[in-house]
């Protein structure tokens, strides 16, 4: 059974501007992935604990100790634009 995908919504969430051709192509590619996920979901997992992480480890902690941060000039030299010690980016609107 084919899975309904709002491909335009998915693209918008990922901030991707796709052409109509691309929308079609990715819709069918994504459908294959979702179809596979649907098959995995169909497996009877009664009595099995969900897997939170494939490594099977827990509680990997580091002590609360400070390590020297990077040099600010080196950090900002990687940025397309910087001003007064800050990264500078196009104006951001809350929720936009």
């Amino acid at each position: 059974m084919p899975i309904e995908i709002d491909i335009a919504h998915v693209a918008r969430l990922a901030r991707l501007a796709l052409t109509p051709d691309e929308l079609d192509r990715y819709r069918s590619q994504l459908a294959v992935i979702l179809d596979h996920a649907a098959r995995v979901q169909a497996v009877d997992t009664t009595g099995l604990a969900p897997t939170a992480h494939p490594l099977g480890l827990s509680n990997v902690f580091r002590p609360d100790e400070v390590r020297p941060p990077l040099d600010v000039d080196e950090v900002l030299s990687q940025a397309p634009s910087a001003r007064d010690g800050y990264f500078e980016v196009p104006p951001a609107l809350e929720g936009a």
Binding site: R62, D64, R67, P69, V72, G85, Y86
Partner: peptide
């Protein structure tokens, strides 16, 4: 805490901008 949640950068307030950063928190 002395250091950040997922890296060893110090937790600071009011310092010069971008002086307590590393690859993880950037």
């Amino acid at each position: 805490t002395a250091s950040k949640m997922f890296c060893g950068c110090p937790v600071v307030f009011g310092d010069q901008p971008n002086t307590a950063v590393c690859p993880t928190c950037l």
